[in-house]
Write a protein that binds this DNA or RNA. Structure first.
Lengths: 147, 147
DNA sequence: TATTGTTATACTCTATAACTATA
DNA sequence: TATAGTTATAGAGTATAACAATA
């Protein structure tokens, strides 16, 4: 009886809800910045670099689903803030290598604390079961965003 | 042993993943428009109107987490596209009532079909269990976006 | 000739501040 | 005096197109 294939009415409703929720949340996230001087994409790039260690601008652009010129600007802003270091690529002189600075580590740690505060304020509106669902969905959303 | 209160390391990691996924997905959603001439917020407003039947610009602004002047512009664009009708408020001559047209209904139906196609293409990268998690999370995300 | 990254430019979306009309 | 909506303006973030350097 339960139709588990994709493309059911349930799936369509879920996609609809996810799309509109993502847009609304993204608008609020843009304003509720953990660091007033850092845009969400800049934060996301730092998060990516914290995981990868380092990457080229082109790799970052692909990972963040942003066009190369946009990443050029983002990397330049991060460098100006002392959060990122640019070095020449060892094998290819066209490319560059972007790495996070220690200041970025510190900042990310601080950002995590502030996010927890934001989380706590939102948590008042969700019960335990709902949070359990969200915790389980977080990695899937992450995978979806990377597909 | 399991700490079920908010503010645990698990919660922080989940919030982190949700935040960055939401931002990445929102960027992609902005481009992968179901209707080329409609922004994500315009789509969201039409979805809201389809549920509520009608609303004032102020109500819509609050629901979409957008400032009143932004909603003025959005409503004007939707009206220009014939997707929304504006009428005077019966009790208060300062307010207006925004309602969706039949054309909006048709458009939303068409949009749903296109979203299903996008869903199907993404579905190839997720397994059944992951989709089940997302389906369960969709209403919670929706609630979160409205808090 | 193809690819990486940059520069120059324009566009979309949203916000803030100031204003009008009504309550 | 307070509220709903609008107008005018500015800003943030991203894209596209054209270009430079290197492969």
């Amino acid at each position: 009886m339960p139709d588990l294939s994709h493309g059911t009415a349930d799936d369509a409703a879920a996609v609809n809800a996810i799309r509109s929720s993502v847009m609304r949340l993204s608008r609020r996230l843009k304003r509720q910045r953990v660091d007033e001087s850092l845009s969400p994409t800049e934060m996301s790039v730092l998060g990516t670099l914290a995981l990868c260690g380092s990457a080229t601008p082109g790799e970052l652009a692909r990972k963040e689903h942003v066009q190369p010129p946009s990443m050029t600007r983002i990397v330049a802003l991060l460098e100006a803030k002392g959060l990122v270091r640019l070095e020449p690529h060892p094998d290819d002189r066209r490319q560059k290598v972007v790495s996070p600075t220690e200041q970025a580590e510190t900042m990310l740690e601080d950002a995590r604390r502030k996010r927890n505060a934001w989380l706590a304020s939102l948590a008042e509106g969700l019960d335990e079961d709902e949070w359990a669902v969200l915790r389980a969905a977080a990695p899937v959303l992450e995978k979806l965003a990377h597909l």
